[in-house]
Design a protein around this nucleic acid. Structure first.
Lengths: 142, 142
DNA sequence: CCTTGATCCTGTAGCCCCTACAGGGGGCAG
DNA sequence: CTGCCCCCTGTAGGGGCTACAGGATCAAGG
């Protein structure tokens, strides 16, 4: 066996993790949840990942960076795996996700405003009479 | 016993949940994690919540609305429980929380921009050649 | 008085997305 | 052959709930 052949045979879990920048345990987790297929194994039972496995993992990790849930990613992958997905379907899933991200942003901005308002009423003094606590203990926020 | 006395004796879990707008199970959960004290009980073992218990629950729920974590709320409550908290301490906790909210917002906005960009390159057609998939499968996001 | 149906109790398991351990077996360098 | 690191498996933990199952209690109606 040449070194070339060995390289093409695949990489083990730790190496795949290093290359893709994720935790080795995450890879195993994706396998148990069916996002990654069961990879080949060495005689000793060590996982061996092909180039295709590596691309698939990259796909998943990149989707996670975009905050797609694993369920959403499963949806994307199954479209791609079926092979006959349309661009429109993918766009719809993405648009849906985008909407939930935008909603989360606007919720957080409301939150941020409220926190700033409550916080600005505080004299930061040493007296225990705190308007923040009053706001939390009081009848309503808003 | 007058009806007045009975009313002051407290409410059961379901009623407390209804009044405060949370799930009854949440109340029990807050008890097991020590955020709420063990309440009084009827002879049959049913929980009976006092006015003080109700205020404390409202405090927790309102803090949760502001996205404080339960750990942060525990911190706030223990300051209040100790009695000798200063306004400055409370302000510091709040400012800290505000910072993490703001960070989350800016992360999500970056995300939103990326999703919009990727999404806008999509023709939404029926061909399976999708730039979103390409972006996810490709070498890097950004 | 008895039955229904709501509510209460307890303990436990599930959700999401990992992360971390324990207790063992491989693989390679010195 | 002795380290040392990696790999394997199964399982538990985190945060913040929520939802059962299997039983007891309660309040109201017939």
């Amino acid at each position: 066996m040449t070194e070339f052949t060995v390289t093409r045979a695949g990489v083990k879990r730790g190496e795949l993790a290093r290359r893709s920048g994720c935790n080795p345990e995450t890879i195993r987790y994706y396998e148990t949840t069916g996002l990654l297929p069961e990879p080949a194994r060495t005689e000793a039972g060590h996982r061996l990942y092909s180039e295709a496995d590596q691309s698939r993992l990259r796909f998943i990790l990149r989707s996670r960076e975009l905050d797609f849930t694993l369920a959403e990613i499963r949806g994307l992958l199954s479209l791609v795996d079926d092979g006959d997905y349309s661009c429109a379907e993918i766009h719809a899933l993405t648009a849906n996700h985008l909407k939930s991200v935008s909603r989360k942003i606007s919720d957080l901005r409301t939150l941020e405003r409220t926190l700033k308002r409550i916080s600005s009423e505080c004299a930061k003094g040493n007296e225990p009479d705190c308007p923040i606590i009053d706001a939390l203990a009081g009848p309503a926020i808003g």
